[in-house]
Design a protein around this nucleic acid. Structure first.
Lengths: 144, 144
DNA sequence: CCAATACACTTACTTAGGTAAGTATTTTAA
DNA sequence: TTAAAATACTTACCTAAGTAAGTGTATTGG
């Protein structure tokens, strides 16, 4: 990728994940697992579809990550009224630890962003949001 | 990750890769493969270490991606004077196609950045560069 | 009513990247 | 001079995420 902007974005994305994993190691968690726990903490019990829509990933990604969270006792899945759905919730173990983890992760993120003041962080967010999917040609649309 | 900045960076990173892959599909290439071809185009033949240092990834990542580039006939590896090293270069096939691919990828990236003017792109780059690894405590350093 | 369609989730396979440990070569130091 | 340490790369195993296809349940239209 020759536009250095995308290169830089990619680097920082990998850096952030690496650093977050370093903090999460203590809890035997990984960044993608944490993103789901955080989601559940914010919104309460929800379906897998609601999770992958919020996180903007594909359904199989959530299926896989939830399997591990279930194995390790952080989340549980129960049948919904609609039997196709699985309602996901935090376990008691998770409920008791999530706040502490959140604090640790927030501190890390603040640290990584300590070179930017509040205004610059806002600016950065605003600029990132302006990056958009490529305009699609007639041909692309047909191939959908 | 609750600081939405990192969430956003992660999203845009994934978006860019997805879009680049869409363009590269036509050449039966993937984004990580392209990043190495681009590197070789810019700097000419180089060792694997030079590649992973430039791309800021780990050595095994380059080993793996080069194996595929070799299989598919885009790159070749030759023994160096230092027999531990492998000197990597573009094949004739690659030489003849890389310029065209670069043009296509650049057009895509310009498209994705069309919501930002030249100044804003500079700003965005500057702000991203201010994101840094977390400060490490005494204990962290000891554990290295 | 029930066949066709849509939907929620899963499975299988692929790229991408990280860590840890292994191999072969080169460099360094006693 | 040669044993120990460093270096370049590889292998094995893990997380993360995408696509395509499969399964079972719900909805809809004839």
């Amino acid at each position: 990728m020759e536009n250095l902007l995308f290169h830089e974005i990619h680097q920082k994305s990998r850096l952030a994940i690496k650093e977050v994993n370093e903090v999460l190691k203590e809890y035997e968690l990984y960044s993608a697992q944490w993103s789901i726990l955080f989601c559940l903490k914010q919104f309460g019990p929800m379906t897998q579809k609601e999770i992958w829509q919020y996180l903007n990933v594909e359904a199989p990604t959530v299926t896989r990550t939830l399997s591990k969270l279930e194995e390790s006792g952080w989340a549980e899945r129960n049948e919904g009224a609609d039997k196709r759905q699985r309602i996901v919730r935090l376990t008691a173990k998770a409920e008791s630890r999530v706040a502490e983890i959140e604090e640790r992760v927030t501190m890390l993120e603040d640290d990584m962003l300590s070179g930017l003041n509040e205004d610059e962080q806002q600016q950065l967010m605003g600029l990132l949001k302006k990056i958009q999917p490529a305009a699609r040609t007639e041909k692309d649309v047909k191939n959908d």
